[in-house]
């Protein structure tokens, strides 16, 4: 096993996380701003996460073939739920008095969103991002089945050639990665909430 695989795994996860934020954040905001969309959006991302990961990757593979992009798209779809939901919840739970004050000061809807609401909701959004990252690290293991590489391939090979060491090295790297991300992001999260 080499560092290449670890970095490959990281690459999948980070790209997917960026993609998820880029798509999920606006979706969450949309769900918050538009009551008629909110059920549809929240329900859709919930269903996406319910889908078996390998099935999801398989279907994407049908459309764009097997490569790392397949895995990244799969991970994005799979981890939309925590980010969309937390964005929505974070925005919804802001103290109404603050929102009212912002409106009373003459802020427009968009201005208020960017300068008041999103900054206030950010800690909750960050929690969503953390959940998304940690989940992605685990799910990215499936990448190996659709030609996306990553640590899954080490584990898979280990199982095939019945090499315990190989399995363990893959697993432990994976666990370490998950724990490091989880802990460091939890630490940042704590700081954010303290503010």
């Amino acid at each position: 096993m080499s560092w290449t695989l670890i970095f490959q795994h990281l690459y999948l996860v980070i790209m997917a996380t960026i993609g998820t934020i880029v798509i999920g954040l606006p979706l969450g905001v949309l769900a918050y701003l538009n009551k008629s969309f909110n059920r549809l959006i929240l329900w859709s991302v919930d269903i996406l996460q319910t889908l078996p990961a390998l099935a999801l990757l398989g279907v994407i593979m049908v459309f764009i073939g097997g490569n790392s992009l397949t895995v990244i798209i799969g991970l994005i779809l799979y981890s939309l739920l925590p980010i969309v939901r937390n964005t929505y919840v974070g925005l919804t739970n802001i103290d109404p008095a603050i929102k009212e004050a912002a409106t009373a000061m003459g802020m427009g809807k968009f201005y208020k969103l960017i300068h008041v609401e999103l900054p206030l909701a950010f800690p909750v959004v960050f929690t969503g991002i953390r959940i998304a990252v940690v989940t992605s690290i685990g799910v990215a293991v499936f990448g190996t089945f659709v030609g996306g590489g990553g640590l899954g391939s080490v584990i898979y090979r280990g199982i095939h050639i019945q090499n315990m060491n190989l399995i363990m090295s893959g697993t432990l790297s994976l666990m370490a990665m998950a724990i490091i991300f989880d802990f460091s992001m939890a630490w940042i999260e704590k700081k954010l909430y303290q503010k």
């Binding site: 078996p52 099935a55 999801l56 279907v59 049908v62 089945f145």
Partner: peptide, 30 residues
């Protein structure tokens, strides 16, 4: 299990098999 279809589909590049495994698995989960 349904994985068999997906595996075989992925292995042989048979999209129908992939879908045949993925859709029922998705429906079951939902």
């Amino acid at each position: 299990g349904l994985g068999e279809f997906i595996y075989r589909g992925v292995g042989t590049n048979n999209n129908i098999l992939i879908i045949a495994g993925a859709i029922p698995a998705a429906i079951m989960a939902i």
